[in-house]
């Protein structure tokens, strides 16, 4: 797994790649949380374009970041979600999330 961060103005984009399961979710979480803690972006974009597989641990990862970022008034957007991931997000009924 790997996360590449891009920053512009108040937006932090996390380009995720690899597979997300319960094992790798912990590494993704630590990496994103560290960057968010340092930069406190107004908008955190989670880019799933490089994710080849994801189980429901990925939903936990999104929900956890959503909780952290909205706590200080920020927003979270999920982008480039492949159909499989979009299907799981729908199943989770995480309607408040911005998914593109």
């Amino acid at each position: 797994m790997s996360v590449i961060f891009e920053r512009s103005d108040d937006t932090l984009t996390a380009l995720l790649s690899g597979e997300i399961d319960h094992h790798t979710a912990a590494e993704f979480r630590e990496s994103i949380d560290r960057e968010v803690e340092m930069t406190k972006p107004a908008l955190l974009v989670l880019d799933f374009g490089g994710i080849g597989f994801m189980d429901s641990s990925g939903i936990g990862l999104i929900m956890g970041r959503y909780k952290n970022v909205t706590e200080y008034g920020g927003k979270v957007r999920v982008t480039n979600a492949p159909p499989m991931i979009a299907r799981m997000i729908k199943l989770a009924g995480v309607g408040r999330l911005d998914v593109f």
């Binding site: 979710a25 979480r29 189980d55 429901s56 641990s57 990862l61 929900m63 799981m88 199943l91």
Partner: peptide, 17 residues
């Protein structure tokens, strides 16, 4: 769906999936 005893990082979607 969404029931979990696994903490805030678990979505509680295992069986639903």
């Amino acid at each position: 769906p969404l029931f979990t005893t696994g903490g805030s990082e678990r979505a509680g979607l295992g069986f639903a999936v």
